[in-house]
Design a binder for these strands. Structure first.
Lengths: 192, 192
DNA sequence: GCCGATCCATACTCGACCGTATGGTATCCA
DNA sequence: TGGATACCATACGGTCGAGTATGGATCGGC
């Protein structure tokens, strides 16, 4: 889009590179993370990059750690603050379903699971989210085994949906149809 | 594994290259599909490759079409042959769950959804499978809307499971635990 | 207003991989 | 059995992107 149409005259920091890297990853995947391309996008050259980072690998590492930090703390804390445990699941589903941007990096990293650097990050993030889901299901009344398996199922459905509708463009589901799908999901995955 | 430990003295055909390509894709992903690497693995050189195929792109295309052909016809026809519609879903779930190999290429292609050549193939395959699931759910008693959404949910759970447990190595689930998960999945996704 | 540190540009090297050119060897068949 | 065809090796050219070397510009503190 904007090749070099940014009037930023300030000099760059490592964080600027990391943010740009995350944006590029979200847009075109980890494989598209090339330093010269990033430099062009930022309006500078490689010379700048190799002052801030020792290697391309280091940038990827820093960007991933930065992304992991940003985290999903707000959502988790807000859901946990809800008084009625049974009301948490539908609320969580609806919130997650109606945010698009936060899932774009996750979806991109999902496609880079062959890359050694992203595996541990994704393992940690996915594990944390699944544990959160498990406790929510427990508090909603499921016995531990059921809660764990239901959390696995729910999170798998989330991940699969990202792949099928985000990345792949299966018969582009409409907005109303999507809402109906979310409600159907709530009905079948939430303990009655 | 077997670098060049194959005593094959016969000459190669285009199908041999396609099969080797699919095996390599299943093992290391589409990105690892390089002609010189493949040639080494087959015990020949590039000279052979460029006699059978005009370009690397052509090989990938042929391999994808070959994979799409192999298909899942056996499973589908066998499931459709079952007399009791309500018994089809559990059987389908259990069969799919206990085969590993057939899903490896699909899982690898899932991670290559940014590649223009694999998108249409995956779109067709996924679409066919989802339509199959939808009719099964219809025959099991769900009204059309419910059947479609349940199929979406089920297939998303399948795709997500591949990513989370196949590619990513989330806390390596045990065999018994996996069986319990499958049964849980049958209970919650199958119309009672 | 000078100087050291910070930030960036330019110009290279190097390796990986695609594709081409061309000649060699095996195989089949008239 | 000899030649056409199918299959393969060797060697080369070209591109793309990572990383290096080095000098220039800019900024902050004194």
């Amino acid at each position: 889009m904007n090749a070099s149409a940014k009037p930023e005259r300030t000099r760059l920091s490592a964080e600027d590179w990391e943010d740009a890297a995350l944006k590029l990853i979200a847009d075109q995947g980890v494989g598209a993370l090339a330093v010269e391309a990033l430099a062009r996008q930022l309006g500078v050259t490689k010379g700048s990059f190799y002052w801030h980072f020792r290697t391309r690998e280091a940038l990827l590492q820093a960007a991933l750690e930065r992304w992991e930090q940003y985290g999903e703390k707000e959502v988790i804390s807000q859901i946990e603050a809800m008084p009625d445990p049974r009301a948490r699941l539908p609320e969580l589903f609806r919130r997650v379903a109606h945010e698009l941007a936060p899932h774009r990096v996750y979806a991109a990293l999902l496609k880079a699971l062959d890359h050694p650097q992203v595996v541990p990050v994704m393992a940690r993030v996915s594990q944390r989210r699944m544990e959160f889901l498990t406790t929510i299901y427990s508090e909603a009344g499921l016995v531990p085994d059921e809660a764990l398996n239901r959390a696995r199922l729910t999170y798998a459905a989330y991940v699969g949906f990202l792949q099928l509708n985000f990345t792949l463009g299966l018969p582009r589901i409409s907005h109303d149809e999507f809402d109906a799908y979310v409600e159907h999901m709530i009905r079948t995955l939430t303990p009655s």
